[in-house]
Simulated scan of single mutants.
Amino acid sequence: MPGQAITIGIDISKDHLDVALYPGGETRRFLNARSGHTALLRWLGKQVVARIVFEATGPYHRDLERRLEQAGLPFAKVNPRQARRFAEATGKLAKTDRVDALMLARFGVLLEPQSRPARSENLVQLAELVAGRRILIKDRTATLNRLKTLGQELLKRHARHRLRQIEAHLTSLNVAIDAVIAADPVLTRRLAILTSIPGLGEITAQALIADMPELGTMDERQTAALAGLAPITRQSGKWQGKSFIQGGRSHLRQALYMPALVAMRFNPDLKSRYDALVTRGKHAKVAITAVMRRLVVIANALLRDDRTWTPKVA
């Protein structure tokens, strides 16, 4: 129907974009390159677009995301696992590029995922550098553990040499991360706000900025859920199971664990929260998770209000 708003699903691969309209079911294929993006935007210019839905695909969606933002088109980037579960729930077991595009369009109509702005170029660079640092830190831990079990002197020398390489690479990455943040006033301000929270050091604050750019735009439950720190209730009839955390961004939970331990010692508000939970009989790990959740919720609130942390007045 002319003038009717449509939802568009885009299945993204390295070489192609498979595009589907809903309602209507029309599909088209474009190159996943600048020329293909231009052709897609020209075609979309003839439509009344309510929402464009695509899966997060790492490097393959970034250029398209930037072009959609520049064109002022509303889009939502969804978790691939969530999209696949939706397809299974609707009985769509076949998996082709065309089917996936149609499924994403229908996903957008029924669930109305929230549109969020694309990341700035500086934020994209920061996220890549922070991810690289995370990989190096894992490599360092694995090499240190391996060094403890080695018997051959040659292998020990190789391991020590690898550790020196890792340390050098970490140093250069940290310099690059500092430079990216210093060159961007918005990132600089966000870092200053986050590091004002007792327990949050620069490395954790950088990880939050890079891996959770939505901070400052959500409510408390959305924030906790995105970090995988929202307790999931299990209840059926008279049966009541234990709540647990699940999903979300696991590397953020890992990044928040040590800061939570530090905050329990030096942040009076969070220390009192931890002590109260333990006094009520909660397991220490449950109480630590609650502190982690509170940390990320505080970070979201401070960024939303554009203010640094201040202690509560008794």
Rank of each mutant, 00 (worst) to 15 (best):
M1I: 12
L17Q: 05
L17P: 00
V19D: 11
G24C: 05
E26C: 01
T27S: 03
R28H: 02
F30S: 01
G36S: 01
T38W: 00
R42P: 00
W43I: 02
Q47F: 06
Q47H: 13
V49R: 04
A50L: 08
V53P: 05
T57A: 09
Y60S: 13
E65P: 02
L73P: 00
A76V: 03
K77H: 09
Q82S: 08
A83K: 01
R84V: 01
R84P: 04
T90Y: 11
A94T: 10
K95T: 03
K95D: 04
D97K: 01
R98G: 02
R98S: 10
V99H: 07
A105P: 09
R106T: 14
E112T: 10
P113M: 13
R119C: 11
V124C: 12
V124M: 11
V124K: 09
R133V: 06
R133M: 08
I135C: 12
I137N: 13
K138C: 10
T149I: 00
T149D: 10
Q152K: 13
Q152A: 15
R160M: 11
R160K: 14
R162N: 14
A176I: 03
A176E: 06
I181Q: 03
D184F: 08
V186E: 15
L187R: 00
T188G: 15
R189F: 09
I197N: 03
P198E: 10
G199W: 01
G201V: 11
G201R: 09
I203Q: 14
L215I: 06
R221F: 10
A224C: 06
I232G: 01
G241R: 02
K242F: 03
S243M: 07
F244I: 08
I245S: 08
G247R: 06
G248F: 09
S250A: 15
H251C: 13
L252E: 07
L256E: 08
A263G: 00
F266M: 14
D269T: 14
S272D: 11
D275P: 05
L277Q: 03
V278K: 10
A284M: 09
V286A: 13
T289K: 04
V297E: 05
A301D: 08
L302E: 08
L303T: 04
D305Y: 04
D306M: 01
R307L: 04
R307W: 04
R307S: 10
K312T: 14
K312L: 14
V313T: 15
A314C: 12
